[in-house]
Simulated assay, not measured.
Amino acid sequence: MAIKAQDVKKLREATGVGMMDCKKALVEADGDFDKAIEILRTKGQKVAAQRADRDASEGAIVTATTADGSVAVIAEVNSETDFVARNDQFVAFAQSIADALLAARPADLDAAKAEVQIDGQPLGDALTQMTGKIGEKIDVRRFEIVEAAEGGSVVDYIHPGAKLGVVVEMTGTGDLSEAGRDVAMQAAAMNPIAATRDDVPQDVQDKEREIGREQARAEGKPEAILDKIAEGKLGRYFKDNVLVEQPFVKDSSQTVEQMLKGHGATLKRFVRFALGG
């Protein structure tokens, strides 16, 4: 049967699939619009299966926060190429995933793909459909939900290019939004390993102490003072790698902790996602 151009256009607008693929689907479906959509969806599933083993290492970091600033989500949505990652359709789709994750707050990635709804369908199906539309593997690698304690606030930051993002949880009586953004930008730039020294894993501390001892021993320092030297080196490690102890990038005359005190704010934790990290 003859397929009208306006029907092809209507199907393209409804699915986002290219004109030729839409026309072929309508021909195969004998002009049945709903059947054509199902044919395109099946095609998308086949494309997804064919590309399941492809490396989707490009993409974007996306965030979303509730209106009251009490909960945020940060997610990594992947594509195979940077070209697709900069595509408006992919960017909008990635943001819709962040918004849906924030609304549903699933327990883990498996639950998210089965339960989170994107335009009325499970996230897993939406990823399959988008893979079919775009023609390369689209996936969600990870996400994390950050919920502020009572009286606290969450602040999100996406570095230009969307390859890096941070969410921080703040408490205090001052301007948590301004202080939180400064801390998030610091975390993005300096890649600290922990918010405070208490958050540094014990095995990391033990390793740094041992490195300090061995360095001092190699320099011929007396055994009696090796532990003291090692503690000093650990303290310097904290200043370099613990967020609140780092020099504040906007004003290196003070630490991040000193900046926060000036704002009446305290950092509780941060989550930093770098693409592929």
Score class of each variant (00 low, 15 high):
Arg213Gln: 07
Cys22Gly: 05
Ala64Thr: 04
Pro201Glu: 11
Val200Trp: 07
Phe273Gln: 07
Gln205Cys: 13
Ala85Lys: 01
Phe143Glu: 02
Asp21Tyr: 02
Ala126Gly: 03
Val155Gly: 11
Lys24Met: 08
Glu210Arg: 10
Glu144Leu: 12
Ile138Val: 14
Ile39Leu: 14
Val84Gln: 02
Asp82Cys: 01
Asp30Gln: 13
Ala75Phe: 00
Leu226Glu: 06
Asp110Phe: 03
Met19Gln: 09
Val183Leu: 13
Gly235Asn: 14
Lys233Cys: 03
Gly165Ser: 12
Arg197Asp: 15
Lys4Pro: 00
Ser57Cys: 09
Gln117Lys: 11
Thr65Asp: 08
Gly212Asn: 08
Phe143Cys: 01
Ala98Glu: 02
Gln215Cys: 06
Met185Asp: 10
His159Ser: 12
Ala265Arg: 01
Gly151Ile: 02
Glu13Ile: 02
Val154Phe: 02
Gly165Thr: 11
Gly44Asp: 10
Phe83Asn: 06
Glu210Trp: 06
Lys10Ala: 15
Gln186Tyr: 07
Thr42Phe: 00
Ala162Ser: 15
Lys9Arg: 12
Val8Gly: 05
Leu176Lys: 13
Thr66Arg: 11
Glu245Phe: 01
Lys10Trp: 02
Thr65His: 04
Lys23Gln: 15
Ala224Tyr: 03
Leu109Asp: 08
Thr15Leu: 07
Tyr157Cys: 08
Gly124Gln: 03
Thr255Gly: 07
Thr128His: 00
Val167Lys: 09
Ala25Ser: 11
Leu109Val: 12
Tyr237His: 12
Lys261Glu: 14
Thr65Gly: 09
Ala98Phe: 06
Leu243Gly: 09
Ala103Tyr: 01
Asn241Lys: 13
Phe248Ala: 08
Pro201Ala: 14
Phe93Pro: 00
Leu226His: 07
Val17Glu: 05
Gln45Thr: 11
Arg213Leu: 06
Gln45Gly: 15
Arg181Phe: 06
Glu219Gln: 15
Ala195Arg: 07
Asp198Lys: 13
Ile74Glu: 06
Ser253Ala: 13
Ala224Val: 11
Met1Cys: 02
Ile229Asn: 10
Gly277Gln: 14
Ser57Lys: 13
Met190Arg: 12
Leu102Val: 03
Ala94Gly: 08
Ser96Pro: 01
Gly212Val: 07
